[in-house]
């Protein structure tokens, strides 16, 4: 299933880098708050993998832009409308079940998307994707296992994971805009298999909310950036 993606490489690197950066930040908000120490470590570790991926993509985006900006400059010195992450990644953590569903939806998408990217003629993008796929395999497995554990658990946990699915579902369309639409059947099959194992099913179609890829974000991104960028905005280019 090889296909060509017509986005400019710099724009693509920015999108994929921003996805990873923003979701990494969300995951790190769980640090010290997860239900158990093991889960705390897991979410932080997944966040760390994503942060590493973000750094590779954003450094490359900066290189292609050729205006002297590196990953740090792109992460800390852009405003909301300049971020190109999908809306799913910036959604607030909610409860643990909602965060797990968000992770499962995103990681399952990332896995399919990066399999395509690994075949790219752009050697740098292909190398980042090939490296990341090894990490993503663990992310998908971790999130899928939790979806099953919660869905197949108590009435309460099932209810919460169903709420998480319902919350996240309207942000799924955005993952499959443009040429990424071709990835949707494989994604739905993957997600359906896990949801069925959890005693759940794919929700009915809803009108999707999009805009993140064009820099139109939900109210949540600004708050996230305020926290993430605070030190660099107060003390621009501070080093330690």
């Amino acid at each position: 299933m090889s296909q060509t993606f017509t986005l400019s490489p710099a724009e693509l690197a920015l999108r994929l880098g921003d996805d990873a950066l923003i979701l990494s930040h969300r995951l790190c908000e769980w640090c010290g708050h997860a239900p158990t120490l093991e889960v705390d470590l897991a979410l932080s570790n997944i966040g760390l993998d994503l942060l590493g991926q973000a750094q590779f993509f954003l450094n490359y985006a900066g290189e292609m832009e050729n205006a002297g900006r590196d990953a740090d400059a792109l992460a800390y010195h852009r405003d909301e409308h300049e971020f190109k992450n999908c809306l799913l990644t910036e959604q607030p953590n909610g409860d643990f079940a909602r965060s797990i569903v968000r992770q499962f939806f995103f990681s399952a998408w990332q896995q399919l998307r990066f399999h395509e990217l690994a075949k790219s003629g752009d050697a740098t993008m292909a190398a980042i994707a090939t490296k990341a796929l090894k990490e993503i395999a663990y992310h998908v497995q971790f999130a899928a296992e939790w979806v099953v554990r919660l869905g197949d658990g108590t009435e309460e946990s099932k209810c919460r994971v169903a709420d998480g699915i319902s919350w996240s579902w309207r942000f799924v369309d955005e993952l499959f805009t443009g040429e990424d639409a071709a990835l949707r059947p494989a994604w739905e099959a993957r997600v359906r298999a896990t949801l069925n194992e959890a005693g759940l099913d794919l929700p009915a179609p809803v009108r999707g909310i999009t805009g993140g890829r064009e820099g139109r974000h939900s109210e949540y991104l600004g708050h996230l950036l305020a926290e993430m960028q605070y030190v660099q905005r107060c003390h621009p280019n501070a080093q330690w």
């Binding site: 093991e38 889960v39 470590l41 897991a42 570790n45 760390l48 993998d49 990490e135 497995q141 971790f142």
Partner: peptide, 12 residues
Amino acid sequence: ISRYGSTPCKAL
């Protein structure tokens, strides 16, 4: 116990 451990490269 957990697929993620004290460093990214280790499981518990």
